[in-house]
């Protein structure tokens, strides 16, 4: 019996090993250079003068008020956007109505409008130079350069997050389970709370997570409307800019490190959701 020497089989649905290694190396290098390096820098710069300096910077009254303001803004905008997202997904996926496609486009609008333009538009609507703004000022209602303006600007930029996540999930789930609940005698609200909400809870959490990360980190839109009054209208990102421009690098990076930790936590929770509940999320099968 003669032995025919086999040549190494050429892979059919993948690349040869050296190519694979090259591509993996390129990808990992790219990620390391463009993603990990800046992230590491944040923490390195924050700790440049040791823990104590960093913690002291965070404990200053201005920093604390910035942290508090950021938390309050997120606590208001995120629930509002969650309600909006649920309402939008409910109307869009459970009913057939005129102008649906146009409505979806409108919901997506904030994704493609510059945050600075959003802030500008808000100032033109309610700033002191507009007639509506003059009326508000006459009635002692301050929106621009005050807390309500920051909330509105943050809502603009975070507006599509929850709806975008929920709509595909609810399209996939269809209407049959809600209809079944109704035929069994459940009221509309009951069927919503006992059937719809449990079915979308993970997707909702996912959307809220992304919405929250953006709400706490928004810079451009808030910078325009905040007026940057220290201790009053400075959110964490605005405070970072002010400190950085004053060459208070450690203080700026310490605040930045807090936000970076929040970002890492967001990514961790998001990944957990994706691994455990991939079948119930839209993001993991978007195409």
């Amino acid at each position: 019996m003669s032995v025919v020497p086999l040549s190494r089989p050429v892979p059919v649905t993948t690349e040869p090993r050296p190519t694979r290694h090259l591509l993996i190396g390129l990808a990992v290098g790219f990620v390391a250079l463009f993603l990990f390096a800046p992230l590491v820098t944040v923490f390195a710069e924050a700790l440049r003068q040791g823990w104590v300096a960093s913690v002291q910077a965070l404990a200053s009254p201005d920093a604390r008020s910035a942290i508090r303001l950021t938390l309050i803004v997120a606590a208001i905008t995120v629930p509002l956007n969650a309600v909006f997202g649920i309402a939008a997904a409910w109307a869009i996926t459970k009913f057939d109505f005129r102008g649906k496609a146009f409505l979806i486009t409108l919901i997506d609008l904030p994704f493609s409008v510059s945050p600075v333009v959003a802030g500008l538009a808000l100032i033109l609507l309610v700033g002191a130079n507009s007639s509506f703004g003059a009326w508000l000022a006459a009635n002692d209602l301050k929106i621009v350069f005050a807390f309500p303006g920051i909330v509105l600007a943050t809502m603009f930029v975070t507006f599509p997050f929850v709806a975008r996540e929920l709509i595909p999930v609810m399209v996939e789930q269809g209407r049959a389970e809600e209809e079944a609940a109704l035929t069994l005698g459940a009221s509309g609200w009951r069927s919503f709370f006992t059937v719809t909400l449990p079915n979308i809870r993970w997707a909702l959490l996912y959307g809220v997570l992304l919405c929250n990360a953006r709400a706490m980190g928004e810079f451009g839109a808030v910078a325009v409307v905040s007026g940057k009054i220290r201790g009053e209208t400075t959110t964490m990102p605005i405070m970072i800019e002010m400190l950085y421009n004053e060459y208070l690098s450690v203080a700026a990076f310490s605040l930045a490190a807090v936000l970076a930790l929040l970002a890492l936590l967001t990514l961790l929770l998001k990944s957990l959701l994706e691994w455990r509940h991939a079948d119930l999320l839209a993001a993991t099968r978007r195409h």
């Binding site: 990808a27 990992v28 990620v31 993603l35 990990f36 390096a37 800046p38 992230l39 820098t41 944040v42 710069e45 992304l210 990360a213 953006r214 706490m216 980190g217 928004e218 810079f219 451009g220 964490m236 990102p237 605005i238 970072i240 800019e241 950085y244 690098s249 700026a252 990076f253 930045a256 936000l259 970076a260 929040l262 970002a263 890492l264 967001t266 990514l267 961790l268 998001k270 990944s271």
Partner: peptide, 23 residues
């Protein structure tokens, strides 16, 4: 790496800005 790809979505832009500048 897969999880890290979303870092730019989660990290505030101002934070990215000062970090890149420092680098």
């Amino acid at each position: 790496i897969d999880a890290a790809v979303d870092l730019p979505f989660a990290l505030p832009t101002a934070v990215a800005g000062i970090a890149l500048t420092a680098l």
